[in-house]
């Protein structure tokens, strides 16, 4: 009983994570400008990685593996905004304009 509930939860999390990952991938291809694509990438990072890692945590139960996954999750969670910010700033300095009127250009 407990097993199947955990399995069901893991499946749900993996479906959510996979779906958001793919949507983020579609977004990064489909959205028109660099600064809009950052949002799609951020989405793939915040809604794809944590659910899949959580699903694996549920599957591995109370063990060292769970803690390792938790640490990976924590670090990715800490670094992903820093990375997005670094890129946005780099692009801004590098001359990519974040303003609306550039949509047609790229």
């Amino acid at each position: 009983m407990m097993e199947s509930v955990l399995d069901l939860l893991s499946w749900a999390l993996i479906v959510i994570g996979g779906a958001f990952g793919i949507i983020g991938g579609v977004g990064i291809v489909r959205l028109p400008t660099f600064f809009t694509r950052i949002h799609a990438a951020g989405m793939a990072e915040t809604m794809c990685v944590p659910p899949i890692l959580l699903a694996m945590m549920l599957q591995s139960g109370w063990s060292l593996v769970t803690f390792k996954l938790a640490v990976i999750l924590g670090f990715l969670f800490l670094t992903s905004p820093a990375a997005s910010h670094a890129l946005a700033k780099a692009a801004l300095h590098g001359g990519v304009s974040p303003h609306d009127e550039d949509i047609g250009r790229s």
Binding site: G25, I28, F34, A41, A44, A83, L87, A90, A91
Partner: peptide, 11 residues
């Protein structure tokens, strides 16, 4: 732009 590439590479 190169930033698009880096963004994708980061992901």
């Amino acid at each position: 732009t190169v930033y698009d590439r880096i963004l994708a590479v980061n992901m």
